[in-house]
Structures are given as structure tokens and as C-alpha cells.
């Protein structure tokens, strides 16, 4: 296929619009979510979770330091988590610091307004995109690894290529490689829907209508833990994704996610 005259684009308009919607909504939801977490910085497994139940994870503010307690370990996080200094020089005893929360000060009601409004934007985008990708074959054609790609030899080679920072060029760059496919697919059909469902499983009204959510997550307190872990995994995905964009040519990558990018022109 002649790249110069091809009308095929690297990213469809639906992918591009959804991508930038997610940049916005995930940033807002992560930061407002961290503010909401600050209202009760303890996570539990099971149906109920409150003092004096035993949390498996918590950020505590002690007299002079902040600590993260997880799996029996105490980690000193003074200056970042639990106890930190705000931009006016005042020492705060709060879990997540002001520069990662929305709003920056403690305001649970406002953080919930941000979170729950953007949750609708995020959820609508996800449902529309997943529906369209199933319908037009994007999932099966572009994201589901082929049998050959899923072979250990191919996977191993792709992992080595990534570690050596050798990225596909030219025609091969117009397709997703197998690691990209697996990463995008697991985020698209696993992590992002899991984020929505574990969020819904924290609503007493939704639980009344869809009690199977309690079975799925093994309780309300567990759903809150899953929601938090999923958020951390999405942050991890975004960091790796950004690192890959930077390493493989950020201008080209960002331009093609805005304009679509012509296939065949290569990097």
C-alpha cells in the first residue's frame, strides 16, 4: 500500500477522541479520588470496613511523622504521605499531599462532585468505545494477539526488543506489537471496566439494583480496595505508556494521536 496516497489512518477518530477524553477524565478522577481517599485513608477486605476493623493498607498521621502501613510493614513517608508541608509552609496531617489532590485543600463534597461528574464522562466514553470496537472489529483485528504472536518465542523476542528500546519502524509501526496489544487489551477489557464496576459497587443505591456486584467483589469494603488498587495499576500503565511515547519519538506519537497519522510514513 502506498503510504503517501493512503487514506487509512493510524488511529481512528473514535480512538483519538476517546484517548483525549480519558486523559482529562482519568486525571480529574485520580486526583479527586485521592482527596476522597483522604476522608478515610484505610482499606479493608470483606463486607464491612471501619474502625476498629483491621485495615490491610492505611496512611497514618502520627505526632511527628507520616507512615504507610501495608502487610504488616511500617514505612516512613514523612514529607509525602501522612504528614507533609503545604505551599504556605504549614505542616498538614493528611494522607495524600495537596499537590496530588483535587481540590488541593480538604473538601470531600467538592471532590465527590468532580469525581462523580467525570465518572459519567469516563463511563460513557468507555461503553461507547468498547461497543464500537466490538462492532467494527477493532478489538479482534487490531488488539487480539494472533496465535503466532502469542507464542513464547515471539513474546520473548518482543520483550527483548522493548528492553533494548528497539521499536518497530516503517510499515511494522503501523500495527500494534504483541506487548502493546496485551497491554491495551487488558486495560480496555479488564482494568477500565473493573474501575467502573468497583466504583459502582460502593454505591448503596446501585448495590440494591445490582447485588451481584457484592458477589463479584466479595463485599463493599473489598470493592473499595479493588478500586484503589486498580487506580494504582492505571497510574502504572500511564507511566509506562508515557515512557514508551517519550522513548519511541514523542512528537510523532502525539501528532498521530491528534491528527490520526498517515500509515506508511513511519517514524
Amino acid at each position: 500500500m502506498d503510504g503517501e496516497t493512503s487514506r487509512t489512518v493510524r488511529h481512528r477518530i473514535s480512538t483519538r477522541v476517546w484517548h483525549w477524553m480519558n486523559v482529562l477524565s482519568l486525571a480529574v478522577m485520580l486526583m479527586s479520588g485521592l482527596m476522597i481517599f483522604n476522608a478515610h485513608p484505610h482499606l479493608y477486605w470483606g463486607g464491612h470496613g471501619a474502625q476498629p476493623d483491621m485495615p490491610w493498607f492505611e496512611i497514618v498521621s502520627l505526632q511527628a511523622r507520616g507512615e504507610v502501613h501495608v502487610a504488616g510493614l511500617s514505612i516512613d513517608t514523612t514529607g509525602f504521605l501522612g504528614r507533609w508541608t503545604d505551599h504556605t509552609g504549614v505542616v498538614r496531617s493528611r494522607a495524600f499531599p495537596e499537590w496530588v489532590t483535587l481540590p488541593s485543600g480538604y473538601n470531600l463534597a467538592l471532590a465527590r462532585d468532580w469525581h462523580l461528574t467525570f465518572a459519567w464522562l469516563f463511563m460513557s466514553g468507555l461503553v461507547a468505545y468498547l461497543g464500537r470496537s466490538l462492532w467494527n472489529g477493532h478489538l479482534r483485528r487490531d488488539l487480539l494477539p494472533s496465535l503466532a504472536e502469542a507464542s513464547p518465542a515471539h513474546l520473548g523476542r518482543d520483550i527483548l526488543d522493548h528492553l533494548r528500546l528497539r521499536f518497530p519502524k516503517g510499515e511494522a509501526a503501523s500495527r500494534y506489537n504483541v506487548l502493546q496489544k496485551l497491554a491495551y487489551l487488558s486495560v480496555l477489557v479488564g482494568l477500565l471496566p473493573g474501575m467502573v464496576l468497583s466504583g459502582l459497587a460502593m454505591s448503596p443505591a446501585v448495590l440494591a439494583g445490582w447485588p451481584w456486584l457484592l458477589v463479584l467483589f466479595q463485599g463493599h469494603a473489598s470493592a473499595r480496595s479493588v478500586h484503589f488498587i486498580s487506580a494504582a495499576l492505571i497510574v502504572g500503565f500511564v507511566l509506562v505508556h508515557l515512557a514508551m511515547v517519550v522513548l519511541s519519538g514523542p512528537i510523532h506519537g502525539i501528532r498521530s494521536m491528534i491528527t490520526g497519522g498517515r500509515v506508511g510514513k513511519g517514524a
Binding site: H48, G49, A50, L108, M202, P204, L207, H220, R224
Partner: peptide, 12 residues
Amino acid sequence: TEHSCVEGWTAI
């Protein structure tokens, strides 16, 4: 039933 506090804790 389960009591869900706006802060995030729950009790039954």
C-alpha cells in the same frame, strides 16, 4: 443492612 459513610467506611 450495610451503613455506607460518605467518607468511605462501612459497617453492617
